[in-house]
């Protein structure tokens, strides 16, 4: 288990850097899931756990600076526990969330504690010492790597077997209940998206997307294509109506101003 915990820690460290620097999104559960699966020897289960966790974190993105439970730790611990304990990924969500919340709280602390470094940077800036600024820039990514490594390594190394035992002692209703809750949780992510995006002018498009799946069962990509088509139509129509002072268009534009100010 030591080598596996080590590899998982290394991956978590890299993913932790990527979450804030680089942003290639190797840190999302959809990628982390199969990687952890590979390390722990069950690639397919990792793939599926990654898909479940990806959807749970679909709306938990850093909108306007708000920090949701940490997606890296959620994805890594969630997948690892799903595989080690042989539980349904939806149950693993319940185990992963407390770790993810704790990780995010610690990151907030790091970001607070890092402010004094800026004053060191000020001195380098004053002396036109660009090398000095470069060197200070590399500190935080290294710190993040170490932090994510430890947070992922410890529970896997020390807790995995215990966690497996604890889960085997858990009563049926608890496991089933966590699984049900895990299935519902994407609703929170979508509500968070709506909290930022929702305006009454866009409500019809939400309805179209919903009905296309609920009644017609269309795949998401098909709906995205229809969405692009409607958006393109709307874009060109707006160009055409611009010269006329139609009151309707006017309200739409006012709405848009609110939209960009609101974020």
């Amino acid at each position: 288990m030591f080598v596996q915990a080590l590899l998982i820690g290394l991956w978590a460290g890299l993913a932790g850097i990527d979450q804030f620097n680089g942003l290639t999104h190797i840190h999302r559960p959809i990628v982390t899931g199969p990687v952890i699966g590979l390390i722990l020897g069950d690639f397919t289960l990792g793939l599926m756990a990654g898909a479940t966790l990806e959807l749970v974190w679909a709306g938990m993105v850093p909108l306007a600076g708000a920090q949701p439970p940490n997606v890296v730790i959620g994805g890594v611990i969630g997948t690892a526990f799903a595989i080690i304990t042989g539980q349904d990924p939806a149950v693993a969500v319940g185990i992963a969330v407390p770790f993810a919340v704790a990780a995010q709280a610690s990151i907030t602390l790091i970001f607070t504690a890092f402010a004094p470094v800026m004053h060191k940077m000020d001195v380098h800036a004053k002396n036109a010492n660009t090398k000095g600024i470069d060197h200070l820039t590399y500190i935080q990514p290294i710190l993040l790597f170490g932090f994510f490594f430890i947070i992922a390594f410890l529970p896997i190394f020390f807790g995995a077997e215990q966690a497996a035992e604890i889960v085997s002692l858990l009563p049926e209703w608890l496991i089933n209940g966590l699984s049900v809750a895990g299935g519902i949780m994407p609703a929170i992510g979508f509500a968070m998206l709506l909290n930022i995006m929702f305006k009454w002018v866009y409500a019809p498009f939400f309805a179209i997307g919903f009905v296309a799946v609920a009644y017609a069962g269309l795949p998401i990509l098909a709906i995205a294509i229809v969405g692009v088509a409607i958006a393109a139509y709307d874009y060109f129509i707006q160009d055409n109506v611009k010269p006329e002072p139609v009151t309707n268009t006017q309200t739409t534009i006012d709405d848009e101003e609110d939209f960009s100010d609101g974020i």
Partner: peptide, 27 residues
């Protein structure tokens, strides 16, 4: 550009969110 870009993005985004609500919540 701001208004038109965010409007177009919002239309596609809202349709996709509507679709996700219908397909991915297991309740």
């Amino acid at each position: 550009g701001t208004k038109k870009v965010s409007r177009a993005a919002s239309i596609v985004g809202m349709m996709v969110v509507g679709a996700l609500v219908a397909s991915y919540i297991n309740l």
